[in-house]
């Protein structure tokens, strides 16, 4: 606890701001049912109601409460983005470390497969896969994770290559240690810092991808609330000078900025750069 307080005290204002924003988002996502005035799918009034005491942010194209949808949106979008990123990291880190540790044929095969996946424009590839496998939440997470794991793979492999050359890894090899032990105990702890920093960055991109897919109608499916689809569904309001549909977009933008502030700070700490 004391070390946590010390870390918070040492943070620059930007990182502090970022961390605070992320904390609020997480709290909102976790306690969404308690915070939201109505339920996620409930039609509570007419379409496109103005902001009022009953409906702080008005209602959407089906007459659902906008504030409620915004709050639940945090839950759906954040959770899916988090799991997709986490899965991408598991896949990417394991394959990346394998490629670096074993080298040779394993490295060649894995790297070329990754090259091929990366050669296809991401969004188009996802659209293709989603049309083939359908648009469930699980498929969505899996497809995004596999595609994003290629970038994690490259980072993990590059970082691990520098570590594999170290004498302590050599010492572990000639001691007779198994592959798993070498990867888990000798390499991973030393590669963790850049991977953690990358996690924040990738999380942002995954978040944007989901929003983009939802905007296109292929992401999170109705009636689940999601920021990307909320923008799409209510976009007509913009023509009437109502900024309500921009709020979910602003929520996305704010989180992206916040995460990047924190990532920036972590990178600084990790690389040992002096301000």
């Amino acid at each position: 606890m004391a070390s946590l307080i010390r870390t918070v005290k040492g943070m620059p204002p930007t990182a502090l701001f970022g961390a605070a924003v992320i904390a609020i988002y997480v709290l909102v996502a976790v306690f969404a049912p308690l915070l939201a005035p109505y339920s996620e799918r409930e039609v509570v009034g007419d379409q496109y109601l103005q902001w009022s005491a009953q409906h702080w942010l008005g209602t959407d194209n089906l007459g659902r409460d906008m504030l409620t949808r915004l709050i639940f949106g945090a839950r759906n979008t954040l959770a899916i983005a988090f799991f997709a990123t986490a899965l991408a990291f598991v896949i990417g880190t394991v394959t990346g470390l394998l490629a670096a540790t074993l080298g040779g044929v394993v490295d060649q095969v894995l790297s070329r497969v990754v090259d091929i996946i990366m050669a296809v424009p991401g969004l188009i590839f996802i659209l293709l896969l989603l049309t083939i496998f359908g648009t469930g939440i699980v498929t969505l997470i899996a497809v995004i994770a596999v595609l994003d794991s290629t970038r994690v793979f490259r980072l993990a492999r590059a970082v691990a290559f520098g570590i594999v050359a170290m004498d302590y890894v050599e010492a572990a090899r000639v001691r007779g240690e198994g592959l798993l032990w070498i990867m888990r105990r000798e390499i991973l702890p030393n590669a963790a810092a850049p991977l953690v920093a990358e996690f924040g960055m990738r999380f942002c991109f995954v978040f944007l991808t989901i929003a983009a897919l939802s905007f296109l109608g292929l992401g999170i499916q109705p009636p689940l609330a999601d920021w990307g689809s909320m923008v799409r569904e209510n976009a007509t309001l913009i023509t009437f000078g109502d900024i309500t549909p921009l709020l979910p977009a602003a929520a996305i933008a704010l989180l992206t900025v916040a995460v990047n502030f924190v990532v920036d700070w972590i990178l600084h700490k990790v690389s040992g750069m002096k301000d």
Partner: peptide, 28 residues
Amino acid sequence: GYRERSKAELRQVQMVYQMADTALNPRQ
């Protein structure tokens, strides 16, 4: 090759490295 050696054989020969900085895992 060290891969073909038994644990007992590997144990018999140990090495101390020139650069202590790279010889010890900084996270252990």
